[in-house]
Design a protein around this nucleic acid. Structure first.
Lengths: 347, 347
DNA sequence: CCGCTGGGGGACAACGTTGTCATAGTGGCC
DNA sequence: GGCCACTATGACAACGTTGTCCCCCAGCGG
């Protein structure tokens, strides 16, 4: 295996024009249409002609321009757009992977972008993708207003919302059972004798955070332990605010003996804050995460499957692309409580 | 906030043709060029005309077709291609995030795909991206043959290799200091009295795995503990094979008292295997991972920064796009040993 | 009244493909 | 020999934009 340098000046060859079918045609001494035939494996080209064309293609380093092709054919661009909150978050990267996988099977490329929970950025990304004429859109909504998508949907771009519902359009949506999950978490803790169960969640304008809060409240009521404002802390959380909150919960007249964490980031903040603390409250976290089983104590979680979420949404999208025009669907994926230890501590 | 259904039949509107500038022009009673002027904020359009055009755009839900635009202008497509091993792996999703971030600042969209360590798939993805006329390519090489990229590079598409070097082309490359890292790991363990230090790595045809093995060997020699074949286990590892290997290492005539893990997946397998075991060997893992500090004992690692890697590579790519045509560069990012406990166990 | 200026707007070609249709040549059959 | 069928190939338009160039007309100075 020799080391080839792409001969001649390579880096910074910004000015070179890529070879087109025209160039190939000229070099091979045929018409451009014949080149097209060869490139597309269409019949009716004499083998010797095809050979000349292929040689020219090789010599010029020709590669068909897909944009031009799609433009002319008016066909799909073979892309789907994915707008999520942050690819860097393992949960969403799991989603991305699943989306990519299915898209691949259906011969599509994925274009993705992170909104960072910023509605403006979400919109910017989604519309940019529409300008690129993606065949469909998968969106983890950052905001509550999605009417900007109405023209796109009307123009035939299917949109599936993921993880959270859209604010003001009716469209396919895939969610997880946030309420059921937190109800189960609370019930589980109550069953182990806890009556002072706290909830730390994300800002309540985030759909999932709000739903989980509702589930928490319902769980408290059902378990007969009552809902107490003082045991709840919503809002954007960082390590510092979590530490403060935990301290507060501990020093209540009736301290919290158990905590439900609203998502994986919060769970991790809590774990870090509690590291080395002897008297630990029981803990159940929403979202599973790697190594949860290897911590001590292992962390009990409400688990749901990122790739199942991605798969369900993408399947739905492709169903629409295949012509399914039934009314918009809302799919709610189940969650399950995985008891590992941290949630089985008795009060 | 009312709930708008995109009026009329929406889902399954596969047949609708998107409005073009032509349609807008007709509706507004102007020429298509005037529409173009309005859409592009070009001067020389009477405000009242512009208003009519905007109204028509709104009414028809027109959105400029970026492919057509780029085709006509011969300008960049505003996209860059990213081929990695698996977006689902937190390390690569960190890379992805960083790439996305920089691309955004430079007004580019990222198209990405996972090769799953399959050279054929890598090639397929890279060439597909070239067909889409990405402005540049970032590739985590799966195989050793990349001469297929020569025509593309010659045609002016800059390519930067990431995490591993290309097999047979000279191109920009960003790596981490694999050898230095493992040397440091071994040195560290030896300094704590270990003389029987094992190495579990990935298949040696993977560049990083091989480099790390070299570093391990060099570290052993430098530390004066010698290199022993029996302490090394390379190859694809799953939980089972890791368990078997650990057992073997434990039952050697002179058992291993310390382990260097070749990457984060292997580290995790080891941790899972050792869970609950009383007599644990010392452990240093290559790649940092979330929660490493919360395990007991906390895991000592050779850390390097996924986002730094992504950033460096993307910066390099954009430098090329900006016209930098200096000879291909090879950037090696430093790693650092983060002592947390698991590696500071004395032999 | 003429010519000039400049703002507002349009006609047309071109980007790189592919679909449609036409045509040249070749051989076979009556 | 004339006609047909068939193969191999090409000319040309069109996809949705934008760049270039041109035109019309109002206003203005001489």
């Amino acid at each position: 295996m020799t080391t080839l340098s792409p001969s001649g000046p390579v880096a910074g060859q910004r000015k070179v024009r890529r070879a087109t079918m025209n160039d190939v045609a000229r070099l091979a001494g045929v018409s451009i249409k014949t080149v097209s035939r060869v490139v597309n494996d269409e019949p009716g080209v004499h083998p010797s002609t095809a050979e000349r064309v292929l040689a020219a293609i090789d010599q010029l380093g020709f590669r068909r321009n897909l944009s031009a092709r799609n433009l002319r054919r008016g066909s799909s661009t073979g892309t789907i757009g994915l707008v999520l909150e942050d690819v860097g978050n393992p949960f969403y990267s799991g989603v991305t992977r699943a989306v990519e996988e299915i898209a691949r099977l259906r011969g599509r490329q994925v274009i993705s972008g992170s909104s960072d929970e910023d509605p403006g950025r979400e919109r910017e990304l989604a519309l940019e993708f529409c300008s690129r004429r993606v065949d469909g859109l998968l969106i983890v909504p950052a905001g509550l207003q999605h009417s900007y998508l109405v023209p796109e949907m009307r123009a035939g771009t299917p949109v599936v919302f993921l993880d959270r519902p859209a604010g003001d359009v009716v469209a396919d949506t895939v969610l997880v059972d946030n309420i059921g999950g937190t109800v189960e978490a609370v019930t589980h803790l109550a069953a182990h004798g806890h009556r002072r169960i706290a909830f730390l969640g994300d800002a309540p304008d985030i759909f999932t955070a709000n739903e989980r809060l509702r589930g928490y409240r319902e769980g408290c009521v059902r378990a007969g332990v009552g809902y107490h404002e003082e045991l709840v802390a919503m809002g954007p959380h960082d390590e510092g605010s979590v530490a403060t909150t935990l301290k507060r919960l501990q020093h209540l007249r009736e301290p919290a003996t158990a905590i439900v964490a609203g998502n994986n980031r919060i769970t991790v903040h809590i774990l870090r804050t509690l590291a080395g603390v002897a008297e630990r409250p029981a803990l159940v976290g929403f979202d599973d995460f790697e190594l949860a089983d290897l911590l001590s104590p292992p962390v009990t979680v409400i688990a749901h499957d990122a790739s199942a979420l991605g798969k369900a949404a993408t399947d739905l999208l492709f169903a629409r692309l295949d012509g399914d025009n039934s009314p918009p669907r809302r799919v709610v994926l189940p969650v399950r409580l995985v008891p590992r230890g941290s949630g089985e501590v008795h009060a």
